[in-house]
Simulated scan of single mutants.
Amino acid sequence: MEWFIEASDNYGLMIRVRKKLYEFKGLQHIEIYDTVFGKMLVIDGYVQFIERFEASYHEMLAHVPMLTHPSPKKVLIIGGGDGGTAREVLKHDPDEVVMVEIDRNVVEACRQHVGIDKGALDDPRLTLLIENGIEYVKNCDEKFDVLIVDGTDPSPASEPLFSPDFYRACSRISDIYAMQSQSPVLQEKEFRTVLRNTAVFRERRVYLSYIPMYPGGIWSFLIASDSSLNVELDKIRRRFEERRIETEYYTPEVHVAAFTLPRWLENIVREMGLEV
């Protein structure tokens, strides 16, 4: 067995791999490995998910905004070509899910070699569009209950997904918006950029999940809306039970606890003008 190494300027991640299952260089450099922790998707050198740990990412990205909304019937996902976020969103039995993924090769590679979507990508409630999500949002004249951005780390291709113009367009077409917002431990600059640029929303909150497959382990998410985001535990628990959702990582109690931030992160969040 060999090692896959994800290296950045000041830190790195090493995963033992059995073999490489797939590689394609097109719009993005896509690799899929068989590892000691299950299948692993890598895009442009960065780990996107590992099967053993992916629930702590996809469940927290999807269920926190979906359960914040009292009745999410129409959902938009930008990115998420592996299907993990769509899988979790569909557990809420929405009427319609639109998923906009820019790279068809990610979808097909994950369908063929991984399958974490568990059939979500072929669900009749889901419409898959292979196009630029930024342009889709910019030109969209529909309204969505929940909009989730499941994107990669900032790169030349994804950088517009972190711009104020994109967030402004998202706020126009969604009641509740959610995204992954990088590692506040090892990517503080990128984390601060997200907080600064999402100021177009009236209300924003940061929450956390423990994700071993990402450097530093602590990963942040941002939920935003032009309406109140305060939902009590009893109400979240009732919605969770009424929708009969089964999860591996997420619970209503984890949902609430995820918004409790360590002091150093509270200080950053307050400094950037957000509630804690």
Rank of each mutant, 00 (worst) to 15 (best):
E2T: 14
F4V: 13
E6G: 03
E6I: 00
A7F: 00
I15E: 10
I15N: 01
F24L: 14
K25S: 14
L27V: 14
H29D: 14
Y33F: 14
V36E: 15
G38M: 07
G38L: 04
M40N: 11
Q48Y: 01
Q48M: 13
R52Y: 03
Y57E: 07
H58K: 08
E59I: 03
M60F: 02
L61G: 02
A62H: 03
H63I: 01
V64C: 04
M66H: 03
T68L: 12
S71H: 13
V75T: 06
I78E: 05
G79I: 08
G80A: 04
D82W: 09
K91Q: 10
D93F: 12
P94A: 06
E96P: 00
V98Q: 06
V98S: 01
M99W: 04
M99A: 11
M99C: 09
I102W: 13
D103N: 14
R104Y: 13
N105C: 04
V106K: 11
C110G: 05
R111P: 08
Q112N: 15
Q112W: 07
G115M: 06
K118D: 11
L121S: 01
P124T: 05
L128T: 14
L129I: 13
I130L: 12
E131F: 10
N132I: 07
K138Y: 12
C140E: 06
D141E: 15
K143Q: 15
K143L: 15
F144V: 09
F144A: 07
V146K: 05
T152V: 01
P156S: 04
A157C: 00
P160M: 06
P164S: 10
D165Q: 12
R168K: 15
D175H: 13
D175C: 12
I176C: 02
I176A: 05
M179C: 14
M179K: 13
Q180G: 04
P184A: 08
L186T: 01
Q187A: 08
Q187C: 08
Q187W: 04
E188L: 15
E190S: 07
E190L: 06
R192E: 15
V194F: 10
T198D: 01
T198L: 15
V200L: 08
V200Q: 06
V200G: 05
R202Y: 10
R202P: 05
P212N: 03
P215L: 03
F221M: 09
L222M: 14
I236F: 02
I236Y: 01
R238N: 06
E241D: 13
E241H: 10
P252H: 01
V256C: 12
A258R: 01
F259H: 04
L261R: 00
L261V: 04
L265D: 00
L265F: 03
L265I: 04
E266C: 12
N267G: 09
I268P: 11
I268F: 08
E271F: 11
G273D: 10
L274I: 11
V276C: 14
